[in-house]
Amino acid sequence: MARSGNFNVSYRQEIAIFRTLGQKLWLGLLGVILLAYPLLFGEYYVYIINFALIAIIAALGLNLLTGYTGQISLGHAAFLAVGAYTTAIFSSMGLPFILVLLLSALTSLILGLIIGFPSLRLEGLYLAIATMAFYFIVAYVIAHWTDMTGGQYGLKVAPLRVLGLPIDSNTRFYYLLVTFVVASVYFATNLARSRVGRAFVAIRDRDIAAEVMGIDVARYKLISFAVSSAYAGMAGSLYAYFVGILAPEHFGFDVSIQYIAMIIAGGLGSIEGAIIGALFISLLPEGLRFVTGALASSFPELSSNFLLLKEGVYGLIIVLFLIIEPTGIYGIWRRIKDSWDTFPYKYRG
């Protein structure tokens, strides 16, 4: 039966995130799957999904900045790196987890504000160049400030304990990360649909018009940079704890590209897009490994050049999605859903 829309009869309904019973049921099912995942799948798949969960947090941040506010950033890897190295340095001083996490997010946030200031004067291409320059400067400092970051030798991160409980297995990490992802998604969703989020979208669509309508463009651009880099800092911090040892190669320029690929493949300017994109891009190497494994006998050079192949596939995904399906996977899904909901009509009334 075709639905004719949801009618709100109170303010509570108006501002509820989940409006229908169907949404709540699906959400419940998702919750059950999330909780049961480590029981259903093996250790390796929990390990893989942990990276994807970390990527979701950082991708949410980039999507708030690039997808919602329309500010191109080629420096996301730098914010991740700053968060990760801050964590490594403070955790070895014996500070507790929550404090380290907050400090890492804060350090990234401050750097985000610093790189946000040029964004007040620069647009589009020039901002892309500025964030790229910022990335290369951060990468250089990390590689050469050996006393602080260990340079090429790497830097060890102290083992993670939360409230006295050692987080030492993939499964324990999984539950910790799921908690953070749920909190991040919740915060980002509410931010996006509040005054701040609407200001972001107005700036993206036409900044001068936004300014004329009374939006403080400078302030909201800075907020966007701050939130985005805090997300990346948090993701970097969790990444540091998860991998246990950091090296400059973990944060190459290709990582920035990878995050751009995530939000484009998932769908720019939506929370769901960031989640889907992060899952898609993080799990893609597994699919690739499967394919190259199958082709290993006829094309051995494919599996021996796996890292290169991965880089190329990310590039290809960016190009193909932008040309063929700029709304990303989430856009495809929404189109299918709409045509299902409104069948046999073409448009929602």
């Binding site: 080629l74 290709d254 590209i257 751009i260 690929a261 290169l308 192949l309 991965k310 880089e311 190329g312 596939v313 990310y314 590039g315 290809l316 995904i317 960016i318 190009v319 932008l322 040309i323």
Partner: peptide, 11 residues
């Protein structure tokens, strides 16, 4: 897209 092409050509 040019960034994507760059990755593709390098790879």
């Amino acid at each position: 897209i040019t960034l994507g092409l760059a990755s593709l050509l390098r790879s």
